[in-house]
Design a binder for these strands. Structure first.
Lengths: 137, 137
DNA sequence: TACTAATATTAGCATATTATCACATAACCA
DNA sequence: TGGTTATGTGATAATATGCTAATATTAGTA
């Protein structure tokens, strides 16, 4: 615990860094990233999100709870549905920066991606025929 | 596993989001944030970093390994010491954005901080039962 | 009131991650 | 050579996380 709280300044900096870590932790899941990307177009109900992302209701609700508790999204009730929206555009700025970086450094990133999911061959992915074709672009 | 690789485009987007999640996961630890902040001023040896951050050698080395494997930092040997530096200024841009947000929304953030590390106040805070609490109607 | 739909929360389990220890390797210097 | 420092690696227990199933809460409606 690096607390040299001599002037009170270090404590704030320490809080800041812990907060940043919590911030990143909340984003450190593909499902939550997808939820945020889903909300990029605007307000969405919990049901719509889970349908679009094909998540279990309970699972999705838990991810939404994480995003809610960390302040990434706000929710408002409208009748029986609850509409979620992203609280601050900074989120999208960060995601956009990452997207740029991802494409600029695609060659380097690919190596990391392969190291990321080693159990399956990154080249040929099996086409699971019979699955529902999605008209989504 | 949401893979609808009909045109190859969705797969890339999916990879992007998984990569983003991995990116955030690598940053989701206060120690690693501190290491990066420590490297903001430039190149530093592993020993300097651990001394400044008061970390155990082995522990710090592991965190450095995470940052290295994810491509956040590069390392070069100089004699007996190994010098680390941050690979891309985007990291600092993101950290700066968060710092701004942290200070702009300090009042909101403080609530989350308290919920984050409750060393005192064993009074259980009430979860948002009964739907989301609207800021004000 | 009862009933249904939409969300939220809880519980149990499996898995992943962390910090830490112990030891191994490498470079430098006397 | 021997000794000190810097760094890496493997194993372990404690902790955290995610997923599924089940249950609870709220709003709307009959």
């Amino acid at each position: 615990m690096p607390e040299r709280n001599r002037s009170g300044e270090v404590a704030l900096s320490d809080s800041l860094q812990s907060w940043k870590a919590e911030f990143f932790k909340a984003l450190a899941h593909p499902a939550r990233i997808r939820i945020l990307e889903c909300l990029r177009e605007g307000e969405r109900s919990a049901g719509e999100i889970m349908e679009e992302l094909r998540m279990e209701q309970s699972n999705g609700s838990q991810h939404l709870a994480v995003l809610r508790n960390k302040g990434f999204v706000t929710a408002r009730r409208e009748g029986t549905t609850i509409l979620y929206s992203v609280r601050h555009p900074m989120i999208f700025q960060i995601l956009d920066m990452l997207r740029e970086y991802f494409h600029e450094h695609l060659s380097e990133v690919r190596t990391l991606l392969e190291a990321m999911a080693p159990p399956e061959a990154p080249h040929s992915n099996e086409p699971p025929r019979g699955g529902p074709a999605e008209p989504h672009s």
